[in-house]
């Protein structure tokens, strides 16, 4: 095995919202092909951390490297990074006035300069992959939550990203729709995608994650492989958190 530089690297990253210290000295390396699950209590900074990775939030101190670029406040560099990093949000955020297939083609045409036919081709392939090709001509509001989230994943994949970020992709879903989204994510992981997933789906974490990152109060408290993380958490805070989500 050659030792490639990590595709994502956060070094001594701090982030403030005004006086509030939202991220405290975050250090995290992600190698190509790795799957990281991030968990932790609400407000612990999970979203803020992954949003710093694609520059939706600007970090204040430290360095973030993605795919060889150093993140900065320069919009050009931010865009360069975002073109290679897909993101899936808790609230889907499909463009409501555009049909499903148009949701998938817009950025391909704008960012990748694809022709309409190429973009639709890629879009249909991805819709098939997530199992909703039949809904291509509908509006997002006509789809169930689970279907909408799968469209959102397909939309991100259309850009052929090197990394995928997921921010609680199943938290807004009715329970019966969670697995259809997790199945798509699991398959994506099997295909070798580099992923950072913020999720509390511990079954998914156990079967897919190479490493689990536990955050609390803006810090990474503990990082470990799934077996050790669940069986032998090193910190009391981790144990308390796991007890809480497992008892629910």
């Amino acid at each position: 095995m050659q030792n490639n530089p990590p595709i994502i690297s956060l070094k001594n990253v701090h982030k403030y919202f005004g006086d509030f210290h939202a991220l405290r000295n975050i250090n995290l390396d992600v190698e190509e092909g790795q799957k990281i699950v991030v968990c932790g209590p609400s407000g612990s900074g999970k979203s803020t951390m992954i949003r710093c990775v694609n520059g939706l939030e600007q970090h204040d101190e430290g360095t973030i490297m993605v795919n060889g670029h150093t993140m900065s406040s320069d919009e050009k560099i931010g865009n360069l990074i975002r073109q290679e990093v897909g993101m899936v949000f808790q609230s889907f955020n499909l463009f409501p006035h555009m049909k499903v297939l148009d949701n998938l083609t817009m950025a391909q045409r704008m960012v990748r300069q694809k022709t309409k036919a190429e973009a639709r081709d890629t879009g249909m392939k991805l819709l098939e992959r997530v199992g909703i090709a039949a809904q291509a001509d509908k509006f997002p509001s006509q789809l169930s939550g689970g279907q909408q989230q799968r469209v959102a994943i397909a939309r991100a994949l259309c850009m052929n990203p090197k990394v995928m970020l997921f921010d609680e992709p199943t938290s807004a879903l009715d329970p019966e729709m969670i697995s259809e989204v997790l199945d798509v994510m699991t398959e994506l992981a099997r295909d070798g995608m580099t992923m950072i997933c913020v999720t509390h789906e511990m079954g998914f974490a156990r079967s897919v994650a190479d490493r689990i990152v536990f955050m609390d109060q803006g810090e990474i408290v503990e990082t470990g492989e799934p077996e050790t993380f669940f069986a032998n958490p090193a910190h009391a805070r981790t144990r308390a958190f796991l007890d809480q989500i497992i008892s629910h």
Binding site: R82, F89, L94, A107, V111
Partner: peptide, 26 residues
């Protein structure tokens, strides 16, 4: 809703593209 704008940004669209292709139509 800010979420739509962030989704477009996350797809790598520039501020100019987001303005004309998303902000104005919405």
């Amino acid at each position: 809703d800010k979420g739509y704008i962030e989704a477009a940004k996350a797809l790598g669209m520039t501020r100019f593209q987001v303005f004309w292709k998303l902000r104005v139509p919405m």
